[in-house]
Amino acid sequence: MAGQQAQNIQALLEAEKEAAKVVQQARQYRVQRLKDARSEAAKEIEAYKASKDQEFKAFEASHAGNTQTVQASIDKDTEVKQQEIRAQYEGNKEKVVQKLLDRVILVKPELHRNLKKLN
Rank of each mutant, 00 (worst) to 15 (best):
H63R: 08
T69R: 11
F56P: 00
K116H: 06
K93D: 02
S39R: 05
E110I: 02
V97D: 10
K81I: 00
N114Y: 09
E46L: 09
R103E: 12
A47R: 08
K108L: 09
K99Q: 15
A50C: 00
D36H: 05
S39Y: 06
V97E: 11
E44H: 11
V70W: 13
A41Q: 09
E110D: 07
Q88C: 03
R38E: 07
E79W: 04
D53Q: 11
K95F: 11
K76A: 14
E44M: 14
R103H: 05
R33T: 01
V97S: 09
K49D: 04
A50E: 09
Q98P: 06
R113M: 06
A58N: 08
N92A: 10
K43M: 08
E79S: 14
A61S: 11
Q88A: 06
S73L: 03
A61Y: 04
D102A: 08
A47I: 01
L34E: 14
Y89F: 14
E90P: 01
N92R: 09
I74W: 10
N114R: 05
R86T: 03
E55R: 05
E110G: 07
A72F: 08
E79V: 05
K81S: 06
S62E: 11
E84D: 10
E44F: 12
L106P: 00
A61I: 01
T67S: 04
D102V: 01
Q88M: 09
I74A: 14
V96Y: 15
R38S: 13
F56H: 13
K57Q: 11
D36L: 08
H63K: 10
K81C: 05
G91T: 02
Q82C: 13
V70N: 14
S62H: 05
E84C: 02
S39G: 00
I105N: 12
I105G: 00
